[in-house]
């Protein structure tokens, strides 16, 4: 059987809220090492990769590897019924066709359980190669969200270019053009405002803003987000989930024919 108890139950809610608009149905894979998900959006342009390590759970038991197909919309509906401070426990039998979510209030005066029907989902699993990225910029998650939102009012695509002067986000459309440059700032008073840039070589790539905007729904999960880019490769947008793992998004660039 599978059983996992997460004291910070709202973390699961944040994860599902971050991906449910991008991915409709997905398989959650459980093994003794943790709880993971890999899924592409409907257009197969982006890939979501979630990893929650077993040691990040208060209790984690997985007797044999299993894949649980869920409708993320329905899962979000169920998790919405959990209190913000509730402890969430997931349970599933090895051969069952449901998964149970139990919510316990911190004062232990309210316990509820919700059963979600599992689905059979055919999903293609992709191998994500280790990549030596040319540039990685780590910036406040809220700043990334703002850049994507602001540029979306100007154009549909963004050119992200990393040089020694900083990382520039440029967009153009009927309205005009916009450029936003973020520079390294590792001496900001507040840690949450710091920006760091690791540049091995200059790189510039073009992406659809719609997807980058969608990834920003993960903002509540982490103070910072890292964008890693390499020439002619998908960008990796990485939200670290403290002491547990990560939620990563990969987006294929737009490339000349």
């Amino acid at each position: 059987m599978f059983e996992a108890r997460l004291v910070q139950g709202n973390l699961l809610k944040k994860v599902v809220d971050a991906v449910k608009d991008l991915v409709t149905d997905a398989n959650f894979d459980c093994s003794s090492s943790g709880f993971t998900l890999q899924a592409m959006d409907n257009s197969h342009v982006s890939l979501v990769s979630l990893s929650l390590r077993s040691d990040g759970f208060e209790h984690f038991r997985c007797d044999r590897n299993m894949s649980m197909g869920m409708s993320l919309g329905n899962l979000a509906k169920i998790l919405k019924c959990a209190g913000n401070d509730d402890i969430v426990t997931m349970k599933a039998a090895d051969d069952g066709d449901t998964v149970t979510f139990m919510f316990e209030s911190p004062k232990e005066d309210r316990v509820s359980d919700f059963e979600l029907k599992l689905m059979d989902i055919d999903s293609e699993h992709l191998g994500i190669p280790d990549t030596d990225y040319a540039a990685t910029v780590t910036l406040p998650a809220a700043e990334y969200q703002r850049i994507c939102r602001d540029l979306s009012s100007i154009g549909d695509t963004v050119v992200i270019s990393a040089t020694k002067d900083g990382v520039k986000f440029s967009s153009s459309g009927d309205v005009g053009t916009a450029n936003i440059t973020v520079r390294q700032n590792t001496t900001a008073d507040k840690k949450e405002e710091q920006v760091s840039i690791d540049l091995k070589e200059p790189v510039a790539l073009t992406f659809a803003l719609r997807y980058l905007n969608s990834f920003a729904k993960a903002t509540p999960l982490a103070s910072h987000v890292s964008l890693s880019m390499a020439r002619d490769l998908p960008v990796m947008v990485d939200y670290q989930i403290s002491d547990m793992g990560h939620l990563r998004f990969y987006l294929a660039p737009k490339i000349e024919d």
């Binding site: 592409m40 257009s43 197969h44 342009v45 982006s46 890939l47 293609e124 699993h125 992709l126 191998g127 994500i128 190669p129 695509t157 073009t206 659809a208 490769l233 998908p234 990969y250 987006l251 294929a252 660039p253 737009k254 490339i255 000349e256 024919d257």
Partner: peptide, 14 residues
């Protein structure tokens, strides 16, 4: 215009 590639054209099936 640049063409949107799919993610599976970069990452092969595992």
């Amino acid at each position: 215009d640049d063409k949107q590639r799919t993610i599976s054209s970069f990452f092969a099936s595992a």
